[in-house]
């Protein structure tokens, strides 16, 4: 801790990284060629790097435990941190394209692990373009929950193909989700909310959760309250639009 106290990017009182040193642009082009390392296949993801307490050394990968929750475009990591204590036995990962934001979440998790020994060992973050590399991280049916909270709306029609929920990308999400797995989406942009709902509604491998199911799911509340983006919308008194769907087997 002593060296961290001298480090101005960390708050002295909480030991957490300070957000003002990790400012990044709100948008990132998902179409540009990426130069960060990408695992060749899900078998090449080094779990010991992400979850050192669960995987003490890199050759002990075969403990059978795999990542089950993925927060796509995790931003500053608010949701992951709330989920971590709610599902302490589940491994989860945030995926974020902006390098500085990823760096912030990484530091935040490390700091939380230090201040709360034994906790927050089940969450991690990776910098990647999830629109391109989801199959490199997860096997077929590996995930039980996927989150798409407040994604970039890409208003212009010519940029709609950059949206993270699209009919084609849903095929890939359906591939990595197990049957019964749930996809959560929320936005404060009505147009995008309609779009995401329409994409999911028209996809043969997703069906909407009923209102009762939504109420019974402890995760639903977190969608608007846990993330930084959601809190901002709340502060400004904005509306949110939610679409939560379950992965089903395709009817043939």
């Amino acid at each position: 801790m002593s060296e961290k106290e001298a480090n101005p990017t960390f708050s002295k009182s909480t030991g957490l990284p300070r957000k003002r040193f990790y400012r990044a642009r709100a948008h990132s082009n998902p179409l540009s060629d990426s130069h960060f390392p990408v695992p060749i296949s899900p078998g090449h993801v080094d779990y010991s790097l992400h979850y050192p307490q669960h995987f003490p050394s890199s050759d002990q990968v075969d403990s059978g435990k795999k990542i089950q929750f993925a927060d796509i475009g995790c931003g500053f990591g608010g949701l992951l941190i709330s989920l971590s204590t709610l599902f302490p036995e589940t491994l989860m990962i945030g995926m974020e394209l902006r390098d500085k934001v990823t760096e912030y979440v990484k530091e935040r998790i490390l700091a939380l692990r230090v201040t709360n020994p034994g906790q927050y060992q089940n969450i991690s973050v990776v910098r990647t373009n999830s629109m391109k590399y989801i199959p490199n991280y997860f096997e077929k049916g590996q995930l039980s929950k996927m989150f798409f909270l407040f994604p970039d709306p890409h208003f212009k029609e010519k940029n709609h193909r950059r949206r993270v929920i699209s009919p084609f990308l849903l095929d890939e999400y359906a591939y990595v989700l197990e049957v019964g797995g749930i996809i959560y989406t929320i936005t404060d942009v009505e147009e995008l909310g309609d779009w995401m709902k329409a994409c999911l509604e028209n996809h043969p491998m997703f069906e909407a959760l009923t209102d009762e199911e939504l109420k019974a799911d402890p995760v639903t509340k977190l969608l608007s309250s846990a993330t930084e983006e959601g809190q901002k919308v709340d502060r400004n008194g904005g509306q949110t639009f939610r679409a939560v769907y379950r992965r089903v087997a395709p009817s043939l």
Binding site: I40, K140, A174
Partner: peptide, 11 residues
């Protein structure tokens, strides 16, 4: 459309 992915061959 073809929505059901059987596998990805990665290597």
């Amino acid at each position: 459309g073809a929505h059901e992915i059987q596998s990805f061959s990665l290597g």
